[in-house]
Design a binder for these strands. Structure first.
Lengths: 97, 97
DNA sequence: ATTATAAATCGGATTTTCTCGATATATGGA
DNA sequence: TCCATATATCGAGAAAATCCGATTTATAAT
């Protein structure tokens, strides 16, 4: 749990949007045809208006920071919030800051 | 209270250091000759190894984000943590994130 | 095997951030 | 008024972040 890396990951509106959308996948990704239990399919995040490669980069940054988990299912990769890391980060920030 | 601006301000090790040092001025700024009730004199932060102009810039960013308050006393400017804004930010982040 | 789809990576252009030294501004004291 | 000290601002260079299109890799279906 690298606090600095997480802060950098959060200091970007697109990535913050992604994390927030993941709180309510049903509401924010109505076009997804896969069940939401698996998470949200990577391509769904292109709805933020950014290109596929840019979205992939943002997801990679969130993943390396530990803020999301990913799981490959067939040709797709599904993302979920990593609530454990998020909670641990908030707790540490509340203590440190 | 601009959450994005605060996150950007926090996503920098030097600025995070400054905020942390301000929690215990007596411990981290033993060379200051002014009473700590006024805060910590701007020049004290040059102990992080950065130049005067760079330190001034970092303090400006923290100040514009609302994370510190400043007060001029004579030719000096003293900085303190803005605990109200910090607490409000942590609360909002805990809700939003 | 070939083709199609999804996602990651590469290479490069643009923008933002970080940093510095030099200069400007503000205050205080002689 | 003139000089010293403290801080802010300016201008520029270096580094990092952002973004894209093109390509590569991985999986699946025909």
């Amino acid at each position: 749990m690298d606090k600095d890396e997480i802060l950098k990951a959060l200091a970007n509106p697109a990535r913050m949007d992604i994390l927030n959308w993941l709180k309510n996948p049903e509401e924010h990704f109505p076009t997804q045809e896969h069940p939401f239990e698996m998470g949200v399919c990577a391509s769904q995040f292109e709805r933020c208006g950014l290109s596929q490669s840019t979205v992939s980069s943002h997801l990679g940054i969130l993943h390396r920071a530990g803020l999301v988990t990913s799981k490959r299912v067939g040709q797709w990769i599904f993302y979920k919030r990593n609530e454990e890391t998020i909670a641990a980060f908030l707790q540490q920030l509340t203590q440190d800051l």
